[in-house]
């Protein structure tokens, strides 16, 4: 946790000072925004590199959507500044709008139109839009469907909203909870599209409640709470895989923790819940810990069912940093 904070501060300072800043797709600099005297975004700073997938993670009311909507030009900062593709989202709106693709929390579809009609309309705002039938098929919607948007399922609406965000070939995508309301299959398909877009060089800023979404898609994750940045790093570093001091494993309840603690590389062993164990060790002795642990289990004739190196999931980290439950 300490290391996460230290890296966060270092990266922001580095981004502000280095020449890379000119190349940044998004720069947020000491952004503040209040509603009715309540600070929703509080001195928030971060930058997103071109071609990067960047996730904003935080509980409800953490300021994620306010931040994204400021970048999209919907909100004016109280103080601080934002730059998007080198432009001011409000003053340079006409130049910026054709370059970005947006998926808001509310899909904003015309209920009476069919998916193809809505996409056709949005395509006509751009000089060289994507071929719309291919795009519909890519997000898993039948281009020939006569169903109106009103009657689409929540997941289908979300996928159509993604197609609307993509139709203008954006350089930068804002995805505000892109997979909310999708079934697991559609979610996987959407993740695949996001990976393809990244491979094409599209910069993506996404907000999400889903830890695994952030972990699997994002190059870097910013955790915000009460409008403040509390951690920013790669998912691996945040979850501590790169700098692990902890091994968690699941095995039958009642193992001898004193014997485990006596293993050469292990500093401490604890059964945190029946059948759920935690070992602590120095980061450099982690390979030895794993070898010792599995050898010990072999000698006891025990099979473990789960093994995880590091602080745990992003969810664990999140709970520790914010003390807040993530809600869908």
């Amino acid at each position: 946790m300490m290391s996460a904070h230290a890296q966060t501060a270092g990266q922001i300072a580095g981004a502000a000072a280095s020449p890379e800043r000119a190349e940044a797709a998004i720069v947020v600099d000491r952004l503040c925004k209040s509603y009715n005297g309540r600070r929703v975004v509080d001195e928030l700073s971060f930058s997103v590199r071109r071609g990067e997938v960047f996730a904003l993670l935080g509980p409800n009311g953490a300021g994620k959507t306010t931040t994204v909507e400021t970048l999209e030009g919907y909100r004016r900062p109280d103080s601080g500044s934002v730059r998007v593709l080198g432009l001011d989202p409000i003053r340079d709106a006409a130049r910026l709008k054709p370059l970005i693709g947006v998926m808001l929390q509310q899909d904003g579809l015309y209920p009476a139109l069919r998916p193809r009609e809505v996409l056709q309309l949005f395509a006509s705002y751009y000089r060289q839009p994507q071929p719309i039938d291919q795009l519909l098929e890519r997000v898993g919607i039948d281009p020939g469907t006569r169903t109106s948007c009103r009657r689409l399922s929540g997941g289908q609406k979300r996928r159509l909203a993604l197609a609307l965000a993509l139709v203008g070939n954006p350089q930068l995508l804002f995805l505000d909870e892109p997979t909310a309301g999708m079934d697991p299959q559609a979610r996987l398909a959407t993740w695949e599209i996001i990976r393809e877009l990244k491979a094409q060089g599209v910069t993506i800023l996404l907000t999400t409640h889903l830890m695994d979404e952030a972990e699997r898609l994002a190059d870097r994750v910013a955790i915000i709470d009460h409008g403040r940045l509390i951690a920013l790093d790669t998912p691996d570093r945040l979850t501590g895989v790169a700098n692990a001091t902890i091994v968690r494993f699941v095995a039958p309840a009642g193992l001898d923790c004193r014997a485990l603690a006596a293993l050469p590389a292990v500093q401490r062993a604890e059964e945190v819940r029946p059948g759920s164990y935690l070992l602590e060790a120095e980061p450099q002795s982690m390979p030895a810990v794993l070898a010792d642990l599995t050898a010990w289990l072999r000698d006891q004739g025990i099979t473990l069912t789960e093994l995880r190196v590091g602080h745990g999931s992003l969810e664990d980290l999140f709970l520790r940093l914010t003390g807040a439950e993530m809600r869908e």
Partner: peptide
């Protein structure tokens, strides 16, 4: 740097196509 590589890559796959249609 990776940033530059990404930029040129995006330049290839998406040649200045993000433009608004005439008003």
């Amino acid at each position: 740097m990776t940033t530059l590589a990404n930029t040129s890559q995006s330049g290839q796959s998406q040649p200045q196509s993000s433009q608004a249609a005439p008003f």
